[in-house]
Computed example of a mutant assay.
Amino acid sequence: MARRRRWSARGAAVLVSAIAMVTGLLPAAPAAAANAVFQAATLNIYNGLSRADFESDLQLITSKADLVGLNEVGERKAYLQDWAAANGWWYYAPEPTSAAQEALLAKKSMFDVVDKGSVFVCDTNGPGEVPPARYNNWVKYRHKASGRNVIHINAHLNASIENNGQPEDLPRTRCAEEQIQNIKDLAVTMKDDGQVIVSGDLNIDFSADRAYGYEKFPWKVFEANSLPNLRSVYNLYGEKGTGTHTSGRHIDYVYFWKRVPEHQVMWMTDYSIVGGTKSNHNGVVATFGIEM
Rank of each mutant, 00 (worst) to 15 (best):
I204S: 00
N137T: 11
M190D: 06
Q179P: 00
N125E: 08
L49F: 14
A145M: 11
M110Y: 09
C122N: 09
N71A: 14
F206R: 01
Q181V: 08
R231I: 11
K140N: 12
E215P: 00
Q166L: 05
G283R: 01
Q81F: 07
G243Y: 12
L202I: 14
P132I: 07
G165M: 04
Y271H: 06
G275M: 05
A31W: 06
I197D: 00
K191F: 09
A145N: 07
H143V: 05
R148H: 14
I204Y: 04
I204Q: 02
A78P: 03
S98L: 14
K64H: 15
R231D: 10
W7R: 15
L230H: 03
A84H: 11
K107V: 01
A159N: 05
E162H: 03
G243A: 05
K278Y: 14
A20T: 13
N164L: 08
D112S: 14
P171D: 08
F288E: 02
F120A: 06
N125G: 09
Y214E: 01
V16W: 11
D252K: 07
L105M: 12
A12Q: 04
A145E: 14
L58H: 06
G200P: 02
D57S: 11
D252M: 06
Q195M: 10
T173M: 02
A20N: 03
M266A: 00
F256G: 03
L186R: 00
T244A: 00
Y91V: 06
G11Q: 12
S109H: 08
F222N: 02
T23R: 09
D201I: 03
N47M: 14
A12G: 12
W83F: 12
D112F: 11
D57C: 07
E239M: 12
D201F: 10
Y212T: 03
A286P: 03
D53N: 15
G48D: 13
A100P: 09
S98M: 14
P127F: 15
T242G: 12
P96A: 11
D270F: 08
A33C: 07
N125Q: 10
P27M: 04
A20H: 05
G283K: 02
